[in-house]
Amino acid sequence: MDTMLVNRFNREDHHESLFLNIPSNAIGALSKESAERILKRKDTNEIHQLMYVPIENSDDLKWLIHSLHKIIMDEKDVQVVLELADLLYFFVVPFYKEELVSQGELSCLMNDMLFILDLWTNQEVIELVEVIQLELKRVERKGL
């Protein structure tokens, strides 16, 4: 990846949001089509590559969250679920937690995903869910 920028975008409520901007023309950027293929194949060796999908604006973030939600809600393989939970923990939540809390639609989708993930009996998945929930609650308490 040759560049990663953080840009500020105004949301409707005029708070500024930070988006990790991996420009779509950057070397190593993953196209949405490639990301969709990875999600469709559910290859645990490739899921981490989703962190290279350019999130240049709110619509890109919504697309990613909707895509992850769709997979997590129906997934039966614990290894796939663990990789997706890792992606949420290491990439999505650290960079987009304010958006995930403040945008009603994204907040609902995250709550759905965390609820389903929490139903798994895998201790690693449960631990990731707990840490993600704590981080999102911390952001809520700060008040946006």
Rank of each mutant, 00 (worst) to 15 (best):
L30N: 07
F9Q: 14
D118A: 05
G104C: 03
R37L: 05
I27P: 01
R138W: 10
D43Y: 04
Q133R: 12
E12Y: 13
L18Y: 14
L119D: 15
S67L: 01
P23G: 11
V81C: 06
F90N: 07
N10C: 06
E124D: 14
K97F: 04
R11W: 14
E12D: 15
T3C: 02
I116L: 03
P23K: 09
A29W: 05
L144P: 04
I27D: 15
D43L: 00
D60R: 03
L84T: 08
R8N: 11
V92L: 08
D43F: 01
A26C: 05
E46M: 04
L134G: 11
M51D: 13
T121S: 08
P23E: 15
E33D: 15
F9N: 13
A26H: 07
I22F: 11
Y89C: 00
V93T: 10
F90M: 04
K40I: 00
E83G: 01
D13E: 15
F9G: 05
D118T: 03
F95P: 01
V125T: 11
D60M: 06
V93L: 03
I72E: 08
S107L: 03
L136Y: 12
E135N: 12
R11T: 13
K40P: 00
L61V: 08
P23Y: 14
N111C: 01
P23H: 14
M73N: 07
I72R: 04
T44N: 03
P23A: 10
L88Y: 13
E135V: 05
L68Y: 09
S31L: 04
V81Q: 06
R138H: 13
L64I: 12
L18N: 13
Y52C: 00
P23L: 09
Y96R: 00
I27W: 09
R138L: 05
V129W: 07
N7I: 15
E99S: 13
Q79Y: 11
I65W: 07
K32N: 11
N7K: 13
I47L: 10
L100S: 08
W63G: 01
Q49W: 07
L119V: 02
H69W: 10
S102Q: 14
N10H: 14
V131E: 15
T3M: 04
E124Q: 09
N10V: 10
S34F: 04
Q103N: 14
R11Y: 14
N122P: 00
E83P: 00
E98K: 06
E36R: 05
S102T: 13
N21D: 15
S67E: 14
L117P: 02
R138Y: 13
G104Q: 11
E135H: 08
I47Y: 07
I27A: 11
K97V: 01
M113C: 11
Q49P: 01
S17C: 10
